[in-house]
């Protein structure tokens, strides 16, 4: 039975132990709010994670939770979904784990359209192990293992998920709670693999990495809020927009002429190509995009997996020990 819940009903008995000011607090609050607001059965919500700061999330929620191996949560979630397809399976990954030990599992889950919801909490640093660079750390970042600044090129998480075939890809911010709440709801409702990148501030090891997006005042100047069917514009009075031109993105200042008209966002587009371009835009040359990049429908992994073998058997199943080549002893 679904009863009216409050977000506080979804707090577990465990004491929350993140650093003061950590962006994970806001994310946890929005997860609880989403769980309370949506018509979901508590016992059918399962959160899985591995090792990392963000991976403590399942311990702090009063749903079913499983905190396993560094890099193992995606595949464990896949197995859980095969055992019990009715469950809603959430995976919480940090960028260190998600694009470290879990990368291969993650990419294959994308292509198989496993019906799990991955919350990819990206602070561009490995926090729990005290500040080493991850695969999303931007060049020049000073880390415990790159004292002169990281020199490697980072991955764009949403672009990679799109390239791997994810059917739902979105990005949000820890500090934009309303937007984050909406995106979590959308992910929960998506049938298939959902990848949500949440930009999150690590107060201790990578503070202010998203400083340009931190305040409500600054955000409109640096962000495009993607909305399906609407023009992609940003800045005060939507004075700037983006459009696709010659397989790349360019900036325009809309002035009611066809050549300056911003592109209309189409999250249901079959091709992920445009979404991939949007997912790689970065300040300061371009605005960054948040919202739903892609939401398309495909058959889920557990549906295709059980197709054929899951047809109801009218007879009581019996183990055939004899096989085709048994013989009576004459």
């Amino acid at each position: 039975m679904i009863t009216q819940n409050q977000p506080t009903d979804f707090a577990s008995e465990q004491e929350v132990r993140w650093c003061p000011g950590c962006g994970d607090f806001a994310i946890l609050a929005q997860i609880k709010k989403m769980l309370a607001d949506m018509p979901l059965l508590r016992e059918e919500q399962v959160f899985l994670s591995g090792i990392g700061c963000a991976s403590r999330m399942p311990n702090y929620l009063s749903t079913y939770g499983f905190r396993g191996l560094h890099g193992g949560a995606v595949s464990a979630g896949m197995g859980l979904k095969l055992a019990q397809p009715n469950l809603t399976v959430w995976i919480v990954l940090g960028d260190g784990e998600g694009f470290g030990a879990a990368t291969q599992h993650l990419l294959h889950a994308c292509r198989r359209n496993v019906d799990i919801k991955v919350l990819f909490i990206n602070n561009e640093i490995r926090g729990l192990s005290r500040g080493q660079e991850s695969a999303t750390t931007r060049p020049g970042t000073l880390t415990a293992t790159c004292p002169e600044g990281s020199s490697d090129n980072p991955w764009h998480p949403c672009a990679l998920a799109l390239a791997a075939g994810a059917t739902f890809v979105a990005r949000s911010l820890d500090v934009d709670v309303d937007h984050l709440g909406t995106i979590l709801q959308r992910a929960s409702e998506h049938k298939g693999f959902a990848f949500v990148e949440i930009l999150q501030n690590c107060k201790v090891y990578n503070d202010l990495v998203f400083d340009n997006l931190a305040t409500q005042h600054d955000r409109p100047e640096h962000l495009v809020y993607l909305e399906h069917g609407k023009p992609m514009v940003y800045g005060a009075q939507s004075r700037q927009g983006i459009k696709f031109e010659n397989a790349s993105v360019s900036l325009v200042q809309p002035n009611h002429t066809a050549s300056t008209a911003p592109a209309i966002h189409d999250e249901a587009c079959e091709s992920p190509f445009a979404a991939q371009m949007l997912a790689t835009l970065e300040n300061p040359d371009f605005p960054e995009c948040i919202g739903v990049f892609r939401a398309v429908t495909r058959i889920c992994h557990h549906e295709s997996f059980y197709r054929g073998t899951n047809t109801p058997n009218p007879e009581i199943p019996k183990l055939d020990l004899e096989g085709p080549d048994s013989f009576p002893v004459e």
């Binding site: 899985l48 499983f66 396993g68 191996l69 890099g71 193992g72 949560a73 995606v74 595949s75 464990a76 979630g77 896949m78 197995g79 859980l80 979904k81 095969l82 055992a83 019990q84 469950l87 291969q104 599992h105 294959h108 997996f305 059980y306 073998t309 058997n313 199943p317």
Partner: peptide
Amino acid sequence: GDGFSFILADDEHAAASIAIGVSYGG
């Protein structure tokens, strides 16, 4: 069939992780 299924995983860690997910699911 009849409750038994098979999946080819993409590496051994994934295979064992899928298996433990099944066990967690009962």
